[in-house]
Design a protein around this nucleic acid. Structure first.
Lengths: 247, 247
DNA sequence: CGGCTGATTGATCCCGGTCAAATGAGGTGG
DNA sequence: CCACCTCATTTGACCGGGATCAATCAGCCG
């Protein structure tokens, strides 16, 4: 079973949900089945979901990076969060009439697009699954709150360091770290829009982190040279990520 | 029935939840009953919930203002959101092992403290009630996201204007507006911590709004002199508040 | 009256924004 | 293979929004 799961595109999803809630084998199988039936692909730059859309399905990311964002009139944009492999875009978002923000693909993505009726049937028969998805949703909330702190009360250097720490620790439980490096597809523009900084200043802040021997970042590869040092200047405490929840 | 509800301390709660979901009379009665059994009082300045607490009940605010916040080591504080009469602190927060943020009373508050078991029994027999509380939770998420935009991509004047617009529109559906004025118990320090500004600059920004004849604010009373003007400079669009959801 | 909290004002500084231009890295078509 | 275009990164110069420090003022309460 475990070895079978290793091959499944649903692996990161199951891995994540199991941290939230104890899942019985039949629940895992049922979810995997639902995912397998509903696999879609998206191109880099494409919007999976646009602000104002009616949501009638649940999208679970199997591979690739996306971002939630809101665009303002005058060209400004705020990235609200990133969506990483194994994470769910919008479990239960169909409960609200329309979505308040857009979700765009940063890289090519593979995802499962499970229709509302199918999803509701799934969680009705497998209640732990339903709860696990609710935990997932609540977790987006805790991350969103930490981002508010980041944007409101941290200086540029702390802010950027914090976001790097967070992404690094979120990639770890789904097995996307390779030692102290990871694939890092964000442009500096993306990082600027996520941290509320200008591209120019973001660039200078990255250089500061590089010259402090904390990170190296080039050709879409991030290497954390000194994780503890980075966490220290970011005032990073990972508890809000609930990486090791005891069910 | 309606006239009876008018007298009930649960009135703002019912009013809010009915916007989210159609509620049957027996559901309203059941909720009212649960609230009546569980009424508590809190003093101004008191923390109802502290970061790191295990949550094992659901707190529904009947009157008074609170704020969610996170405190940083060095004395900095970020207010994440306000909790107004009729709103629920933490429906379903018990699904996560510990809470990531604190909730403090700004004014004296009256609230219902419904134990987890009681709450779960309530929503099990009355499913629309459960869904309405989930909508409430999702709504906190949409507000949190709008705050990220506020903190990340708006200038001081827009930011403060935006938060005033939001509070004003959130008070409206629970009947806490009196024409173009409302009770406004926040200190300038609270507003500064909510907008990510310094107290000094917040004070100057308020003066700017006053001299532009958009608001007047003194002795804990806010009067909006020109709501449309205020919305215009805030780039305020209330859709994220889902004030008129069609169930 | 003294002490406290919150609002206000003034002076100064600096973090980070803005503008503009240069450099580099693909990607594409002739 | 080169010319050319586009997009991302980088650098320099300058400016300004908002932070910081410090002092004053206004209520309020014991």
């Amino acid at each position: 079973m475990t070895s079978l799961l290793d091959q499944s595109p649903a692996r990161p999803v199951i891995q994540r949900l199991k941290v939230m809630r104890q899942l019985a084998d039949d629940e895992v199988v049922a979810l995997e089945q639902a995912i397998r039936e509903a696999i879609r692909r998206g191109r880099a730059g494409e919007d999976l979901i646009c602000e104002g859309d009616c949501i009638d399905s649940v999208r679970i990311i199997l591979s690739g990076w996306l971002c939630r964002y809101k665009a303002l009139e005058n060209g400004r944009r705020q990235i609200l969060n990133f969506v990483l492999p194994g994470e769910t875009c919008d479990a239960y978002a169909y409960l609200l009439s329309r979505t308040d923000h857009s979700i765009g693909a940063i890289t090519p993505v593979v995802y499962a697009d499970i229709k509302r009726a199918r999803f509701e049937q799934l969680i009705k028969t497998h209640t732990s699954l339903g709860e696990a998805f609710w935990c997932e949703t609540l977790l987006m909330g805790t991350i969103q709150r930490e981002w508010a702190v980041n944007l409101g009360r941290r200086m540029a250097l702390e802010r950027v360091a914090h976001i790097l720490c967070e992404l690094f620790e979120r990639l770890r439980p789904v097995g996307l770290l390779d030692g102290n490096t990871c694939s890092f597809p964000l442009t500096q523009m993306d990082l600027a829009d996520a941290t509320g900084l200008s591209v120019v200043h973001l660039n200078r802040t990255l250089q500061e982190l590089r010259s402090a021997k904390l990170i190296s970042l080039r050709e879409r590869i991030l290497r954390i040279e000194d994780l503890n040092g980075l966490k220290r200047i970011a005032l990073f405490s990972p508890t809000y990520l609930y990486l090791y929840q005891k069910h």
